[in-house]
Amino acid sequence: MNKTEKALREIQAMGELAAMDSPIHRLAPLAKLLVTVAYIFVTVSFSKYDMTGLLIMILYPVAGYQLSLIPVYTCFYKLRIVLPLVCAVGIFNPFFDRGIVMTLGTVSISGGVISMLTLLMKGVFCLMASFLLVATTSIEEICHALRQLHVPKILTSLLLLTWRYVSLLLEQVSIMTQSYHLRAPGQKGIHVSAWGSFLGQLILRSMDRAAALYESMELRGFHGDFYYAGQKKMTAASWLYMVVWIGLFILMRAYNLPQILGSLFV
């Protein structure tokens, strides 16, 4: 299976997840978008040594995945893209930051190790939160929420339209790659002699398609605006969801709750 086919499957899987029904799916997209942004903002704002304080932030994705009935492991597949880069940046911390910040029994732990772990946790948490958003919200809903936030119409329309065409062109590229490889067995990629023509042909055809697409849109009464009919409104539940979570995030950031909790027992 080549990269394009994998991407197509991912798109399909995301669509299926977003089409499910759960209390989280039923919330207004704007509330979910704002909560996600607030979550990521608060999560990355933790200091690099505040590992214990950061840990409590896991409660939002955990609660979200349970309420939306989405299995947590579905998002871990996506970590393959996020983690290498985060690791590449964080891996140097233990070597450069050797000051001992704590000792567990006889094992001393340096600041670099803590900051590396904190960085990894931030990476995983942020990914879980943004995956939760797209797994419970369709692209139409996200675009609607963006419009409510006064993001220019041209950007949201472009996003919607591009999203429609991404799967089509992925399919096209997938077929082209497959037929190319069938004719060039044992070859890893596109040979230098076909560098230009391979994608160039597709560009020519795509531009023709864009013209046809415009005509058909015009025939169906398109006047530069998409309509978002039947969108979920900001219900009382959505307001409550937003206010409670954002309030909790501020609380989690302002106080080191795990430490306070621990001091009750120690």
């Binding site: 472009l158 339209l161 065409y165 991404v166 062109l169 590229v173 597709l202 560009i203 864009a210």
Partner: peptide, 13 residues
């Protein structure tokens, strides 16, 4: 708009 959308989808793929 359609040209932009198709081109961005093409670059993506």
């Amino acid at each position: 708009l359609p040209a932009m959308a198709v081109m961005s989808a093409l670059v993506f793929a």
